[in-house]
Design a binder for these strands. Structure first.
Length: 468
DNA sequence: TTTTGAGTTGTTCGA
DNA sequence: GTCGAACAACTCAAA
């Protein structure tokens, strides 16, 4: 019997560029992998859609690990006890993991480390899920960044660690899907056709994006029906691919062909936003519940259950917003610009607390991420770091005319408006009666009347923020 | 310490 | 239809 090393996997469900797995494997002894569903702990549990993804991702990971001779154990409970128990059961002398950055997560990890050490087990943690760790980057005065652009200028010149390879096979294990107790909800059937899950699918998605979509990325990413974004976010969320792999693979393209540098930079700057949000997560207290700008604590949010429900269900009567909310319900994903629009409608026009929207996205999005979901909601709401100015309130009609001019996106997700001519597709309430009749649209019956007046509610939002 | 320039994603209004 | 200004100061980051 040689040494046994345990790898505790969390948001890093991959074999390649996995520093914890790599280090455990290098030790030369037997390697075991463990995933813990930390239900009921201080760790934020994944939402329903993410939970579905997680189930399939763990299954893919279990197969991949078996191919190199590593068994994946799946347990449930408080990490503090489960990790130590498993280490003891299997006689592990060392435990390895990649770091996470939410204050509550760090506390748990620290206590696991302490308990392991008390039991004579060494714990080793690594940076694996960000470009630079939150404490490695700071302003000239040594303070955390609160403005994105200087953060990005600094980050882009930093050394980003080169991805590690996959550990070599140490044998082959038979793999049988474990009975995790997870019951896939009925609605998850509809998500399935839209996604391939797992490390190989992630790698394929990256290749496809860089080959086919990068050239249109800077402009195309704003057009919801063009699908010019990378759609890597759920893979990144669960660590099926690492952000460092994305960084270096994209950067290699620019090195090979300097004309691509500008395109690549645009993509890298979006990855930097992700790190910027992890920077906030680490340095601020509870970004999912506390406004990062304290004055927003006094914001006169409306308590409006019916408005919230209409927004959630995609029946606000504002086509582009409804399209986005339905896309998310159907696919677990929403195009980026539409995320901003739907969030702007909720927090500004409807004056509903951003936390309500954040929670809904958390539950519905397969890519909802502990740093990015809250930080982006705060950005839209105006309470975030480097947030949009308070007077920047999206008009979903104008946005529709600009970014979905032919109404393709709206027609895809709001089929009851299919027959409505382009000039009215983003504002059916303004269409003449005969046009509506001819299109088979009866406002208030086949499609809702708008639940807010965009102009009036815009003014109300401006007044509310001025009152702070 | 003081100064200076800048700050993801927009809309509206009036010329 | 197009264009520039106003929207409101404020704070940050670096020189």
């Amino acid at each position: 019997m040689g040494e046994v090393s345990l790898v505790w996997l969390r948001n890093d469900l991959r074999l390649a560029d996995n520093p914890a797995l790599f280090a455990a494997h290098q030790g030369g002894g037997e390697v075991l992998a463990l995933y813990v569903h930390e239900a009921g702990s201080a760790v934020r549990a994944p939402g329903a859609a993410a939970r579905w993804w997680l189930h399939h991702s763990l299954n893919a990971l279990g197969k991949d690990l078996a191919e190199i001779g590593i068994k994946l154990l799946i347990r449930q409970g408080e990490a503090a006890s489960v990790v130590c128990e498993v280490a003891r059961e299997h006689g592990a002398s060392q435990v390895f993991w990649n770091r996470r950055y939410a204050p509550a997560e760090r506390e748990i990890d620290a206590s696991v480390k302490t308990t392991l050490k008390e039991g004579g087990v060494d714990a080793h943690s690594f940076p694996g899920n960000v470009l630079v760790e939150p404490w490695e980057i700071a302003t000239g005065q040594g303070k955390p960044y609160s403005v994105y652009t200087p953060f990005w200028k600094n980050l882009r010149n930093m050394h980003i660690p080169v991805p590690l390879g996959r550990p070599a096979a140490q044998g082959l294990l038979a793999y049988a899907e474990p009975d995790s107790g997870y019951q896939a909800p009925k609605w998850s059937v509809k998500l399935k056709p839209y996604w391939s899950i797992g490390e190989q699918a992630a790698a394929l998605a990256l290749t496809r994006f860089l080959d086919e979509n990068l050239s249109d990325y800077p402009q195309g990413r704003d057009f919801p029906r063009r699908e010019a974004t990378s759609r890597l976010s759920p893979h990144l969320r669960f660590g099926e691919i690492s952000v460092r792999q994305l960084w270096h693979t994209a950067q290699a393209l620019a090195h090979a062909d300097h004309r691509k540098q500008e395109l690549v930079d645009k993509f890298l700057s979006e990855l930097a936003w992700r790190d910027f949000n992890y920077h906030q997560l680490y340095h601020r207290t509870d970004i999912a519940t506390a406004p990062m700008q304290p004055k927003y604590a006094a914001m006169p949010w409306r308590v409006a259950a019916r408005d919230l429900a209409a927004w959630q269900q995609g029946r606000t009567g504002i086509p582009l917003v409804d399209a986005g909310m339905r896309e998310m319900w159907e696919t677990g994903f929403m195009q980026n610009r539409v995320r901003m629009l739907t969030a702007s409608l909720l927090t500004k026009n409807l004056l509903v607390d951003w936390r309500q929207g954040e929670q809904w996205f958390w539950d519905c999005l397969i890519d909802a991420d502990i740093a990015n979901n809250p930080a982006n909601w705060q950005w839209v709401a105006g309470s975030g770091m480097d947030a949009s100015p308070y007077f920047r309130i999206f008009n979903p009609v104008t946005q529709g005319e600009r970014f979905d001019a032919e109404g393709d996106y709206v027609r895809r997700w709001v089929p009851e408006l299919d027959e409505l001519p382009d000039p009215w597709i983003h504002q059916p309430w303004a269409a003449p009666g005969d046009v509506l009749a001819k299109a088979g649209v009866q406002l208030g019956s086949t499609y809702p009347l708008p639940i807010v007046d965009l102009k009036q509610s815009r003014q109300r939002a401006l007044d509310a923020v001025r009152s702070l």
